[in-house]
Design a protein around this nucleic acid. Sequence first.
DNA 1: CCATCATA
DNA 2: TATGATGGG
Length: 333
Amino acid sequence: MGVALRDIIIEYKKPIAWEGLAGIAAVDAHNALYQFLSIIRQPDGTPLMDSHGRITSHLSGILFRTLNFLEMGIRSVYVFDGEPPHFKQGTIETRRGQRIAAKERWQEALEKGEIGEAYKHARSSARVDAAVIDSSWQLLHLLGVPSVQAPSEGEAQAAFMAQIGDVQYSVSQDYDSLLFGSPVLARNLTVSGKRKVRGRTISINPERIILKEVLNGLSITREQLVEIALLVGTDFNEGVHGIGAKTALKIVKRREFGATLEKELPDFDPVPIMNFFLQPPVNTDYKLSWTPPDREGIRRMLCDQYEFSPERIDSALDKLATTSGQKTLDRWF
DNA sequence: CCATCATA
DNA sequence: TATGATGGG
């Protein structure tokens, strides 16, 4: 998923306290939803579902995270993907195949009673489908959180909104929004601050990446960062086998991007993808406004339709009303 | 993922 | 008050 720039970006990832994140955040909806669907599962891999078998993991994730963000002074905007560019087709098909394979392995592991394996493969089988998107859109509306429909890639739309100052930063686990020009990217915005990795619980803290710091630090332009991405591979192209981020950085700084591509991938034309990163299609016709959560509406949707516990929903909403202080909230809505 | 409860 | 285990739908 995304682009493998980790090795050259790692030193520009700075820990950031929650107070420093107060403001408006453009959330990469697909990334967040995938994360929720992937992780919010029982140990054997079964996602949260209502009695009709409809998946509800993402609704739980959206609800608690949105309310927690509000308590931290973060107003989120969810940015949804539109039509993918035609050159993403290969990636889309590869992922589809991987999901199907993972689903089969999940079943096999279950039959063998291998719970840990089952969970692992179940995670990889997660899919953000139309039902997930529709229900997410509906819940966000009830929470009073604006959603924006991107014409194409959500990360590109989020980057645009950050560039023009409508949001302070974009939120995603992927680095693509930097390629699209997002001045600030925030990662690891989990409230619990903990994650299980191979049985161990490690602490995960929010981090911030400032595009300007990356470019200045590496002494490259955004165009060159995109060149690096094209060499290592993106969602839109395969990249050159054997070239990682560090090698790509050297190549690009030596101004050998064109020569390297010509030699290694003579049939690949990078220009359309380059242009897509540098001037992606974006929607400029949106408006952002936040309203207080619609308690009754949320209850009707989550409790009456999806069988959430009313007690849990009430206590989550009560916490927002009291702990943050009504004055603070009134200023937002 | 997050909330909640048991345990210390 | 902190940590770990468990359940949520």
